[in-house]
Simulated scan of single mutants.
Amino acid sequence: MAQSLLRMTLRQLQVFRAVCLHRSYSRAADAMALTQPAVSLQMRQLEEVVGQPLFEYVGRKLYITEAASSLLSASEDIFQRIENLDMQLSALQGTLQGELRLAVVSSIQYLTPHILAAFRQRFPQVSFRLEVCTRAQIIQRLRDNRDDLVLMGMVPADRALEFYPFLNNPIIAVAAPSHPLAGRTGLPLGAMENHMVLQREPGSGIRKACDEYFQQKRVHLQQVMQLGSGETIAQGAIAGLGIGLVSAHGAAPWLQNGQLVQLGFAELPFFRSWCVVHARGKRLSPVAQAFQDFLKEERGVIKELAQPFD
């Protein structure tokens, strides 16, 4: 290691990360409660330590250099390790504290806060940063290692991921109460072929699960309207556009208030699993490990929390 790098300080790295985030010395100064000259001085000193320029201006826009990109990646690792150390020291004192960075697919977004609240009852000093994403965004976030853990269904088999199923994910058919099939029971799945069906885009977890299930049952949907999210499908069904294929957890608010009804198909719901997922080989923070253990060991509690959403 170049001895000069040992002269960089954590404060310099904090200011550096702020400049990278805001792409502006003045905005970084505001965020850090510093003056702009103080930020400029810290960055000049850091560039002297690194021995290369970290920023360059093209016109009036600030860009980070290749050296800055490498330093930013290293600094993220440094601060993550410090955060983990803080959690470990707290654990040695008999407490668990820190932040859990969690990303979830949109169809489980309504249930997730209830799970987090139950977890926080046991560990009241834990906080959360929750991101709701599409399946494609979740996969990209896993690739970029942006979260401690993610919650999703249909875990991609072509990636090096560790996952654990913790809850059944019922896939149901919903429609407005005025739909011709509303109120009927024992419907054959093939009856759906005669109606407009609202589905997610190819690549979403629910769409993939539905395609596989309908293929297995030899049902060929004739009229399909593609909508971009579970909420949009629910609203489309409420508006009378057709039958929505959705996760029961995602549709729960509209089923509970009567804007949607669950259709009585004999072969629905079918079930997939919600899974807690992280990259294989990832070293989990104490908070992330505790949350993953909670999902594994308290399936009865989680199942009870999910009942209003089924």
Rank of each mutant, 00 (worst) to 15 (best):
I108W: 04
V39R: 01
Y57G: 05
L102E: 05
Y25P: 00
E56V: 12
L89E: 10
E76G: 13
F16P: 03
E66P: 10
K61F: 11
A31L: 05
G59R: 02
G98F: 03
P53D: 06
V19D: 07
L21C: 12
S69K: 11
K61W: 09
V105T: 12
A28V: 03
S70D: 11
D86E: 15
S106D: 15
E66L: 11
L34Q: 07
R44E: 14
S75Q: 04
P37N: 08
I78K: 01
S106P: 14
R27G: 07
V105L: 04
M43T: 02
Y25W: 02
S107P: 07
Q93A: 14
R27Y: 09
T35Y: 07
C20Y: 11
F79H: 06
L41C: 10
L72F: 09
G98E: 04
Y25L: 08
R17Q: 15
V58Y: 10
T35K: 11
G51C: 00
L41A: 12
A31T: 03
Q80A: 13
L34G: 09
G94V: 02
A74W: 05
E48C: 01
V58H: 12
R27I: 10
R60N: 07
S40P: 06
L100C: 00
L85H: 09
R17F: 11
G59M: 06
E47M: 03
A38L: 06
A38M: 08
Q45R: 15
S75T: 04
L46M: 00
E47H: 03
A29W: 05
G51Y: 00
G51Q: 01
R81L: 08
A38C: 05
Q45K: 14
L71M: 10
A33D: 13
R44N: 13
A31M: 06
E47K: 03
R101P: 08
Q93T: 09
L46T: 02
R44M: 12
A31C: 07
T65M: 04
L21F: 15
C20G: 08
L71P: 12
R27H: 12
R27S: 12
V19A: 09
A74R: 04
L71V: 10
S75R: 03
E56L: 11
F16W: 04
R27V: 10
A28P: 04
V19K: 10
L34D: 08
E76Y: 13
L102T: 09
M87Y: 01
D86S: 13
L71E: 12
L96D: 03
A33Y: 14
S69V: 08
A74L: 08
G98D: 06
G94D: 03
Q45D: 15
S24R: 01
I64C: 09
Y63S: 11
M32K: 06
D77L: 13
R81V: 06
